[in-house]
């Protein structure tokens, strides 16, 4: 990987010939499009991730703006989840995973040794691909975060947080009569919304969502998309998705990943209507992926 480091940093220009053929196995050396925004919530520069010897993310720089939804798309195994997990240091739990580069949250380097992951993860919450409610009651699932962080002083507080969180997640009406039943007994879509409620119960600033709808039917998906739209007003959201329609529907900006690299990023509209990069075009027109 002897690529020049400064090449992809802030340049918005393509760093190689867009029209070159056989692109699938050509090295991609830079990012097309506007990777910076005016008011970034999170800002990453030159991120590389290794799983042991495997170089899973190469040289990715990307901003996530205040109150915007950034969608990340790309073929399977291209490193979307890996990148997302870097943003709240979930990769710390993976043995042999190494992250380099600069990742800022409100101008603070989150990989600084002085930074504590606990408050970081309170600020940057995460919803996973597969719903993973705890084997506890619905109430306890949502109450888990506020409880461990000591955010509440009374039971009434907690009740209120649980209720508002569930309401925001659009689940309240469905579960308000069975709060003490196990969370694992809900349907897949309900479980996913429960996980979202669980995440927003600690009022994070950024929410990372890794294919939150991949296990859900269209109706549940629609509910969650609606939800994302509402949440955007308070939170900053980064979402990984395999569905381009979904990306088009919920996001303001879209980033296209390919083989561990960020190929193109831009206004969602622009990406889907006028992709600048050949790889992006191929992907969104369904030529591969």
């Amino acid at each position: 990987m002897e690529q020049t480091m400064n090449m992809s940093k802030t340049t918005a220009e393509p760093a190689f010939d867009v029209n070159s053929s056989a692109l699938a196995d050509r090295r991609v050396d830079g990012t097309v499009g506007k990777i910076r925004v005016d008011n970034p919530r999170m800002s990453t520069t030159d991120v590389d991730v290794y799983y042991g010897d495997k170089h899973a993310i190469q040289n990715v720089s990307l901003d996530i703006g205040q109150n915007e939804v950034v969608a990340m798309i790309g073929p399977s195994g291209c490193g979307k989840s890996t990148f997302l997990r870097c943003l709240n240091r979930m990769n710390d739990t993976v043995a042999g995973c190494k992250v380099t580069g600069t990742l800022l949250l409100d101008k603070e380097d989150i990989y600084d040794p002085k930074i504590d992951v606990v408050p970081l993860r309170v600020r940057v919450g995460m919803v996973f691909q597969k719903p993973n409610p705890f084997p506890k009651s619905i109430y306890e699932n949502v109450a888990y975060g506020p409880r461990i962080h000591g955010l509440i002083t009374s039971n009434a507080d907690l009740d209120e947080i649980v209720e508002t969180s569930l309401k925001k997640a659009g689940l309240w009406e469905e579960v308000k009569d069975r709060m003490d039943q196990p969370g694992t007994g809900l349907s897949g879509g309900q479980q996913q919304r429960l996980c979202i409620a669980r995440t927003i119960a600690v009022s994070p600033e950024v929410i990372l969502m890794d294919e939150p709808c991949s296990a859900l039917d269209p109706i549940a998906t629609a509910k969650i998309e609606e939800l994302i739209d509402e949440l955007r007003e308070q939170f900053t959201i980064a979402i990984v998705t395999h569905s381009m329609q979904q990306a088009a529907r919920v996001s303001q900006r879209t980033a296209y990943f390919h083989l561990g690299k960020l190929v193109e990023v831009g206004e969602t509209n622009q990406i889907f209507t006028a992709p600048k990069h050949k790889l992006t075009e191929d992907y969104i027109t369904g030529r591969f992926g």
Partner: peptide, 10 residues
């Protein structure tokens, strides 16, 4: 306040 509380209990 949320993050403050978290920091305080840390």
């Amino acid at each position: 306040r949320t993050i403050d509380i978290v920091e305080r209990n840390l």
